[in-house]
């Protein structure tokens, strides 16, 4: 536990960003029906499994046009 302490200033922002991105992506996925690539199931899995990268891929490639 003592080893982690110096790294807290890193872990906290990373966790916040991870969670924020994932939540934003999931909310978007469930509010929309159309995706440019793939389907809802695929993107839920990608977003949940691949942290940070998943939501980014969704927002840049998967998200349909509004």
């Amino acid at each position: 536990m003592k080893n982690i302490l110096p790294y807290l200033p890193f872990l906290i922002p990373i966790a916040v960003i991870q969670i924020a991105l994932a939540v934003a992506a999931l909310v978007h996925i469930f509010r929309h029906k159309n995706y440019r690539i793939g389907n809802r199931g695929l993107w839920v899995i990608v977003v949940v499994v691949f942290e940070i990268l998943g939501p980014i891929l969704y927002f840049t490639l998967g998200k349909g046009d509004d």
């Binding site: 922002p13 960003i17 991105l21 978007h28 939501p55 927002f59 509004d66």
Partner: peptide, 20 residues
């Protein structure tokens, strides 16, 4: 469209992760 969010989050992470 979450473009700003994506960009800011990613670049911030790079800024933080690089020294680490």
């Amino acid at each position: 469209s979450y473009k700003a969010l994506t960009l800011i989050a990613v670049l911030f992470l790079f800024g933080m992760a690089s020294p680490l």
